[in-house]
Amino acid sequence: MKYLKNAATLTFDPDRCTGCRRCVEVCPHCVFEMHDGKARITDKDRCMECGACALNCEFGAISVGSGVGCAAAIIRSMITGGEPTCDCGAASSGAKTTDCC
């Protein structure tokens, strides 16, 4: 299953890539593959913007805008002007516990 075409914000800079394979290891959608000792993107539309590759790329070759992809959280952030956060992590603080993940 794929989501919208050309919506993912994933970018990859092959010049910075050292071929360490971390991105291939962490990506849950096999977006990266190895080619001639370097990583390359197979299909950007498979990217779900979880951010694991960018976080684990020591060489800054990958960037992706990641965040909570929950519609209710995004609508809330549109209203409040903050970053989208789903409130299920706030269980211990006694906050409202509904929605997403």
Binding site: M1, E49, S66, V68, G69, C70, A71, I74, C101
Partner: peptide, 19 residues
């Protein structure tokens, strides 16, 4: 559209675009 929060493949950019 709320279900995007539970899937394994949707993106925040995509959901914003849809919204």
């Amino acid at each position: 559209l709320q279900f995007t929060g539970s899937t394994t493949f949707t993106t925040i950019s995509g959901v914003k675009k849809e919204l």
